[in-house]
């Protein structure tokens, strides 16, 4: 059993303050390859990933993303490609589309952590503004940014928990009586 994998899962935290040290191209590619191996409903792979390294584009994106506190050297935008959904007659309300974004996002953040990089997801942004800034194709909807970089020493501890929880608090065994 690999203790390292479990440790990686447990020690990943969202980082909201990053340095401007660049991320190596191979590391970005390794993170994208990890996303390719994330589970996908019906194995349809409706996600598309847009990598943003250009400083001015990243600056503009941050200006329309109130939930993006970090200035990350790399942004990976997870998009849903609605053409794939349409080709497979998947209704727009199919939960698999959202779950796919989640599995890919978490997989990328764990991959980043395994590479010694910091990461953080952002969904608090204006979709309409992001579409304009990136000139996204009609069939793409922007769903979640994964910010990637190096943790700044000054980075805080993150959002405080509403209450202390253990996995037991979140779990129920067997049928409800």
């Amino acid at each position: 059993m690999s203790e390292a994998v479990l440790n990686n899962i447990k020690t990943r935290r969202v980082v909201r303050e990053m340095t401007d040290e660049p991320v190596q191209r191979e590391q970005i590619e390794a993170i994208l390859e990890a996303a390719r191996w994330a589970p996908s409903g019906g194995n349809l792979r409706p996600n598309r990933y847009i990598v943003l390294e250009d400083a001015e584009t990243r600056r503009l994106i941050r200006l329309v993303s109130p939930g993006m506190f970090q200035r990350a050297p790399v942004l990976i935008l997870v998009c849903t490609n609605w053409q794939v959904a349409a080709e497979h007659h998947l209704p727009a309300t199919d939960r698999a589309l959202l779950i796919d974004i989640g599995t890919a996002g978490q997989t990328m953040m764990l991959a980043a952590h395994a590479l010694g990089l910091a990461s953080g997801p952002v969904t608090s942004f204006s979709k309409e503004a992001v579409k304009i800034i990136l000139n996204l194709p009609e069939t793409y909807s922007p769903e979640m940014f994964i910010c990637i970089g190096h943790r700044a020493e000054t980075a805080g501890a993150g959002m405080r928990a509403w209450k202390k929880i253990s996995w037991r608090d979140l779990t129920h065994w067997e049928r409800f009586k």
Binding site: P66, S126, A129
Partner: peptide, 17 residues
Amino acid sequence: VELLALLITSARIQLDE
């Protein structure tokens, strides 16, 4: 203008949050 962008986009996303 940057501040306006933050305020307007915040107003919009707040509807979903």
